[in-house]
Every structure is written in structure tokens, then in C-alpha cells.
Design a protein around this nucleic acid. Structure first.
Lengths: 254, 254
DNA sequence: TTTTCTTTGTGTAAAATTTACGCATTGAAT
DNA sequence: ATTCAATGCGTAAATTTTACACAAAGAAAA
């Protein structure tokens, strides 16, 4: 296994990596995809290195496809982390020992635990479509509710914080939802998404009025049945209009 | 001179660099600081490499201090450029030949013209305070009006575009001016700055009302004299309140 | 010295946007 | 059939944004 890694690194940039906060929406909560490093209980964001003949954005797409099974994921670069000790620092000595047990002593020296600048991306994905898949360094990949995210390796907690801020800023200036919701959804579901991301509540009547005023949604003749209340209509985004609104920006003024 | 460069590179990251769009405001126009490469008429943004024991932000500050003579420059990271050919590509073959004449054939191979990811920063500075200073590769450093910026080396035109977009976004969500104007300024001068950055005009009465509503400006008892018209009052930012407003954000709603 | 010209200082009304809020209806569960 | 919780729809009030005009100051010109 050491062989493959070396071979990969020969074709990749060593001083730059990228990490990605993958956000999904499930049961009214924002979730983020995390990886548990082999033989340890240390968690991190998915990430990886950029190949020599590959742009940073392509690398992010490649890595995201590997971790989720999805192609053409919605990706947004949000910040580049360039502190000196961001990658070298790891608070749990115990954890490093476990990693050394798994990978062999000194294995990471000069590969992982060196000075690396990391480009931060966030991704928005449809929760149900994701097939969480661990990578070479990890043996578990799964969703975490944002509120439950543990203390992560490296500077990845800070990364999530910044990614969230960037996502919130984005949601205030662009329509959001196409990448996070299934094709058909109800207005209350969309509202819940907005409330979760922006961390506040909205009047449902005003919310509906505002969202419909953007002219990006189409109400279908179907309703969601099953709950003990009036069945809500289903909606879907009109892709062309949605894309246009993403492009031009809208100000979510609630 | 080759010696110094090699010595420097031994202490620096080679696959990452940073470039900086330095903006100043003078005679009602936005200016950007550019460097002319030795022996050529090719211009680029100021930039440089990150030392091994230095964070990206510290490196940006160091480089900016070297180019402007200012310390503690207002700096904002806005995007990281990770395309494969962004640094290798240079449209003017002629230019490369001139560089080779100046620096020696093959001098740049493996130093400059290689795969490098560059972190983009923009800086806001007080025009009159800047002492434009060329670096090791260049023999001229001067201000350019944004409208006159020529075709630049590498992907630096795109960098300026993106920096401007980021600056505009910033100006719509935060107060601006403290870093671009002298300590004391008139309301029309501040308005001109906003109009230049946001590329539109404002009603001067509404502008004054809005800016004063932010409670970040103090009107002084002095006036600017000399022009053939009613002397306008001088204002200055109240630093603590300005900083608070930058921190919390305001929406410039005109 | 007077007049002219340009630019500044100030306030109010209209328009548009945002917020607040009530009642009838639906559909599952009791 | 009744109850209960959530949805669909519309209007009035509050706030924010926009539009707009006239008097005053100061240098320059007459």
C-alpha cells in the first residue's frame, strides 16, 4: 500500500492540498461528511492532493466523486488555509501513536505532517444520493449533524466554521436549495432548509411570497400525502431560471 | 544575484505563491499597483513566495510592506488560482526571450515558470502614503488607473477582475474608506469613492443620510477651502465604531 | 466691489418594500 | 363525525428607500 501512495505523490503537488466540507440536509438538519482515520477515532474532512496535470477545481471534483459517488457536485472555493502549523499540529499525541501503529512509524513524515497549504471548498449535495466512501487513510465515512461534530484533526473545525459562514453569505445573496433538496419538495421543507442554514425562523406566508417572487419555482399538481394535516403542494426549481438567479444574484431580504 | 534567489527559495514554499492587487484611490479613480519585469515591457501584480516558517497572511504582509513601504496594510484573501497553466502560460514569446536576455537562458525554469498555485489577496492603501518599490525581478513599480491596465503577465488580469468583484461585494456589506482615504476627507470625496468602487452614482443627500446613519463618521469643525464653491465640512472615521461596523457588517442599501 | 458660477447643506413627501397577522381548509387520527 | 395540526391565501401597518428643490458659501470673473 505504501507503494501506491508514493506513486500517487510523484504525480501530485506536495505543498498544496484541498479539503472539502460536504453539506447535506436531512430531517431538518444540516449534515457534514467526515472521515475516521484508520485505527483511530480521529475525524477529518475529506480532502486530498492536486495532481500535477489537474486544476484545483478538477481535483476537488475528483475527490468529491470518490467520497460520495456523485459527479458534478456543486463546489465552491471559500478560503485557503496557510498557517504554518495547521497541518503539523495535532492535539492528541495518542492519536499520532495510533496512526503510527496502523501505518508504521514515521510513515507520515514528509507526506502528511509537513507544511501544507490547503484550499478549502464546500460542497452542497443531495443527502439521499450520497454513498459515503472512505479513502486510503480512513476506514469510515459518514454524515454528522453539525451540532454533533467532534473535535477534528488539524484545523478542520475552523474550516467547517468558515465554510458555514461562506454558505450563509451565499444563501443571503443567491437562491439555494437546488443542490440540497430532492427534485420535488414542499414549501415548508424549503423553508426549513433556509431556516437551518440562516439559523433563524421566517413567517411562512412571507417566506412563500418572497420565494415565489423570485420566479424560480414551479408548483406541481401533486401534493405530499401521509401526514396528519392538510397536504402541501410539491414544488420544483425551474433549472434555467434558477441558474439565471444564481448567476445574477438575488438578495434574500428577510 | 542568482545566489540570493536560490538562498531565498531554499527557505520558501515552491508550489505556492501569492499575488496581490493593491488598490489606491486618487483623483477620483481607482488605481492598482503594477510591476514591470526587468528588461521587458511585461507587467504583473506584486507577489512572491511564502517562507517555510511564515503563514500565508504574514507573507502577504511582508511582500506588501516591501512594495509599498507601509506596514499593517489592509489585506483580504479573495481567491486561490489553481489552474494548471496559469503560471506556465505567457502569451508573448518575445517577452520570454527578453527575460532570458536579462536573467540568462533557462534561469526561470523550475523557479518561476512551473506549476504554482497562487493565493490572491487584495490590499486597500492610502494612495499618497505609498512608496512604490520594485522587487528583484522588476525594475519599475507604479500606479495604473484601472481603465488603463494593460494585458498583464500570467493570469493577472483575471486576478484583478476577481479582486475587484470581491472588493465590490465587500463594499456592499461593510463600511469602506478607512484604508483608502486620508484621515480627513469631505463627504463628496467619500461619495466619489463609493461611486468609483460600486460603479454607479448616488443622490448626494441620500448618500449623506445613509452614511451618517451608520454612526461611524464624525464631522469636524474644519472645512476644506480653496475651491470655487461652498467649503465642504471635513469628516473622519471614528475608528472603534468603524471597526465594529466592519466586524458586524452593514448592508449598503443604495 | 459686485456679480457670477459652481458646489455644498438641509428636509419632506411619495413610492416601494418588508413585516405582522387571521381565518378558512385539508387530511389523518381519534 | 369530531378533533387536531399544518397548509393556503390576502390585507393593513410599519419601515425603508427614493425622488426632489432651494438657500448659502466661497472663489473667480467682471
Amino acid at each position: 500500500m505504501e507503494h501506491n501512495l508514493k506513486e500517487f505523490f510523484d504525480k501530485a503537488l506536495k505543498e498544496v492540498s484541498l479539503d472539502c466540507a460536504v453539506f447535506g440536509f436531512h430531517e431538518g438538519e444540516l449534515k457534514v461528511l467526515l472521515l475516521r482515520w484508520k485505527g483511530t477515532d480521529g475525524w477529518s474532512l475529506p480532502g486530498g492532493h492536486i495532481l500535477l496535470d489537474e486544476s484545483a477545481n478538477d481535483a476537488a471534483n475528483r475527490i468529491l466523486t470518490q467520497r460520495t459517488g456523485l459527479s458534478d457536485v456543486y463546489l465552491q472555493q471559500f478560503y485557503t488555509f496557510g498557517n504554518v502549523n495547521r497541518y503539523v499540529y495535532h492535539p492528541e499525541k495518542e492519536l499520532l501513536e495510533k496512526l503510527e501503529t496502523t501505518f508504521g512509524k514515521g510513515f507520515f513524515d514528509g507526506i502528511i505532517f509537513r507544511r501544507v497549504v490547503s484550499i478549502g471548498y464546500y460542497a452542497l449535495v443531495e443527502f439521499a444520493q450520497v454513498q459515503p466512501t472512505p479513502d486510503w487513510f480512513t476506514d469510515e465515512c459518514r454524515w454528522w449533524s453539525l451540532a454533533d461534530v467532534p473535535h477534528l484533526l488539524f484545523d478542520h473545525n475552523e474550516m467547517i466554521e468558515r465554510a458555514l459562514k461562506a454558505l450563509r453569505r451565499h444563501a443571503r445573496n443567491h437562491p439555494i436549495g437546488y443542490n440540497l433538496l430532492p427534485e420535488k419538495f414542499t414549501m415548508p421543507e424549503l423553508q426549513r432548509l433556509y431556516e437551518t442554514i440562516l439559523d433563524r425562523s421566517f413567517d411562512r406566508r412571507n417566506f412563500q411570497k418572497l420565494l415565489m417572487s423570485y420566479d424560480i419555482l414551479e408548483r406541481l399538481d401533486e401534493k405530499r400525502i401521509g401526514a396528519a394535516n392538510k397536504s402541501p403542494y410539491l414544488y420544483r426549481f425551474v433549472k434555467e431560471k434558477y441558474d439565471k438567479a444564481v448567476e445574477e444574484g438575488i438578495s434574500f431580504s428577510m
